[in-house]
């Protein structure tokens, strides 16, 4: 992962599109399967992860000169874990319903490779501001995929967007049915697969054509 001479803007947008953590690095798939049945949970999860990645990158970057290399990983994990626990507590306090739906997956942000990956690959070697932007960019990239998957799954799976029914009743009466597969985890697999396919077939977006 070269930090090279990227501008701050590039640092930020790289994570969102070109080197999207889900579509390009295929990280964070587990939670992308679990929380994308509804847009609401996907958005909250995306925000939570973006906050954690941004904050952890910032903190790690600030500490980067002090962290002893021997206990590097454990320090990173401690920082991330603490952030995740705080976020989880906040969700339980203020967004209880969503927290219930997200269940363990907020806690599992700790194991999300994106967070540790960015801390290791970027924050340890870069100043705070680019690190923060990189963290936020990657978090947003993850959120982007999550929301995209959730839009498809919620629309096809239960005919709703953000919990609001959008499929007209007339359709349902005419024989339209919701696609149950989309509410199951394999549905997300297919959607993510298709998204990666789509992204790679867009001109200039495929890492294979680099």
């Amino acid at each position: 992962m070269s930090n090279g001479n990227l501008t701050l803007k590039e640092t930020f947008f790289r994570g969102i599109w070109k080197e999207n953590p889900v579509a390009y690095q295929v990280l964070g798939i587990c939670s992308a399967l679990a929380v994308t049945v509804q847009m609401k949970t996907a958005i909250v999860m995306g925000i939570a992860l973006t906050l954690v990645t941004g904050a952890s990158n910032l903190i790690i970057s600030l500490l980067r000169k002090q962290i002893p290399p021997t206990i590097r990983i454990i320090v990173e994990l401690t920082v991330i874990a603490s952030l995740v626990i705080v976020i989880d507590q906040v969700l339980q306090a203020f967004l209880y319903d969503i927290s219930k739906q997200l269940s363990v997956f907020v806690g599992l942000i700790i194991t999300n490779c994106i967070v540790l990956g960015r801390a290791e690959a970027f924050a340890l070697a870069n100043p705070p501001l680019p690190s923060l932007l990189d963290g936020l960019g990657n978090g947003l990239g993850y959120s982007l995929v999550l929301v995209a998957v959730a839009v498809v799954r919620e629309l096809l799976g239960s005919g709703k967007l953000m919990g609001i029914a959008v499929v007209p009743q007339v359709w349902l009466e005419a024989g339209y049915a919701h696609m149950g597969l989309m509410t199951l985890a394999p549905g997300a697999f297919f959607i993510i697969g298709l998204l990666v396919w789509l992204k790679n077939s867009l001109p200039g977006a495929s890492h294979e054509q680099k």
Binding site: A177, M179, G180, L181, M182, L184, P186
Partner: peptide, 10 residues
């Protein structure tokens, strides 16, 4: 299988 899991009712 797709139909079975997508449209169990049918």
């Amino acid at each position: 299988a797709f139909l079975f899991f997508s449209y169990p009712v049918s």
